[in-house]
Nucleic acid binder design. Structure first.
Lengths: 153, 153
DNA sequence: TAGATCCTTGGAGTGCGCTCCAGGCAAGCG
DNA sequence: CGCTTGCCTGGAGCGCACTCCAAGGATCTA
């Protein structure tokens, strides 16, 4: 038995959820600028992602232009999420390599994601700490503003 | 009436809370390497902060060496918090300029902090979104790991 | 078929936040 | 006295994640 992440595909590219965000239904070929529009990344960045191995090699049209698939969009959605966590690009490339290497890397992928999860939790806690400081200062300035206003009155 | 942020000082440097984190009591003069040890920043970075205007001009010993005060440490603590929010250094410099400019910049400081607060809230929400994705993937790999284990049995 | 627009490539450039270097001064110690 | 250690300066360098450039080929619209 082989476990795949989505039920309807043969190879595990660790694709994102089946829910396309705002994706023309029934379509499965996108030019680079269409993908740029859908993802918010620039075409430059998409090509760069491919060069550094963060994307698999993208299908090409008969004239050599890139044609992205829905699967590629799924992967980019995941990359976007990982990027939001602050994960370095090098680590994402490592993850992409594990995915390409096949099922026997499940344990390592698990470990990488678990570590990332811990980092995210720590980061959230950190931000909540700074939020407390900000709130203290903000209420100080709010009070000070009121005091100055009443002074003028 | 003039409102100051801490009750025991005359000038408002928007100092951090009176609770020193791990600070030798009764001391009010620190060398750059002591400050580096206390803050986790490097001496290089401390000098650089001063050059770009993120720190006020630091007191000097008779031989020209920097002598940081507890007030400077308070300010560095705030800077550290703001840095954790992801605020660009340029914005922190802007805030520092407002503080140096005097009480009439309270409204602007308030605005800056309020905006930062919104950013932090948005960032936390973002991270919680990525956490959901991570959790989904992690449980996938955990299940897959169990399936592979039972296969070997 | 002309002209505008889009896509291709390798490699160079950018902005940020540090990080380090060279060369030199000052203080403490055996 | 020499040695080590710590600090000073302006300016160069670095790692990251893009971002852009030049020169040329492909595709679309009238």
């Amino acid at each position: 038995m082989t476990v795949t992440e989505t039920t309807d595909t043969r190879t595990d590219t660790c694709a994102a959820p089946p829910q396309g965000d705002r994706r023309p239904d029934g379509k499965d070929k996108y030019t680079i600028s269409e993908v740029a529009a859908l993802t918010g990344l620039t075409a430059h960045t998409l090509r760069w992602y491919e060069r550094i191995g963060l994307m698999p090699h993208i299908d090409r049209s008969h004239t050599g232009q890139r044609r992205y698939t829905n699967r590629d969009l799924d992967w980019l959605a995941l990359v976007g999420k990982l990027r939001l966590t602050g994960m370095p690009v090098a680590d994402m490339v490592r993850y992409a390599e594990l995915v390409r290497a096949g099922d026997h890397t499940y344990a390592e992928r698990f470990e990488l994601l678990r570590t990332t999860r811990e980092d995210v939790l720590a980061r959230i806690a950190e931000l909540q700490g700074t939020l407390a400081v900000l709130d203290r200062k903000i209420s100080f300035y709010a009070d000070a503003g009121r005091a100055l206003a009443s002074e003028r009155a």
